[in-house]
């Protein structure tokens, strides 16, 4: 397949969306929503990252191979963080000191 081509219009729209999301996430950060503050901040960052990856880097328009590579990296990151946090979060569940 040939290299994906996107119009400048698409890039500009993506750019404006990114700027808007930056503004929104900053404004939301001023509210104290407890643990949701972090969830929302990371959520919006993920959306922004997806826009950069999907449109600016045109991953959305790439071959199956590229999409597999990208999902691989993300899945492996989740392997790492899930199993690591799993240990820290489940410590103290058992009413035995040190477990």
């Amino acid at each position: 397949m040939t290299a994906p081509r996107l119009s400048r219009r698409t890039y500009v729209f993506a750019y404006l969306a990114l700027l808007a999301l930056t503004l929104i996430t900053t404004l939301i950060a001023y509210l104290n929503l407890g643990v949701w503050s972090t969830v929302i901040a990371i959520g919006i960052a993920t959306v922004m990252a997806s826009i950069v990856a999907g449109i600016m880097m045109h991953a959305l328009y790439e071959s199956l191979l590229i999409r597999i590579i990208v999902s691989g990296g993300i899945i492996w990151f989740f392997f790492m963080i899930t199993l690591t946090l799993g240990d820290y979060i489940s410590r103290g569940w058992l009413p035995v000191p040190g477990k």
Binding site: G86, Y88, S90
Partner: peptide
């Protein structure tokens, strides 16, 4: 192979639940 590393840490103070999963 990426999902089993905790078996090196059974005696290192990880949680029992984590140890069981690993």
């Amino acid at each position: 192979g990426f999902l089993v590393w905790g078996h090196h840490m059974f005696t290192a103070g990880t949680s029992v639940y984590s140890a069981m999963v690993f």
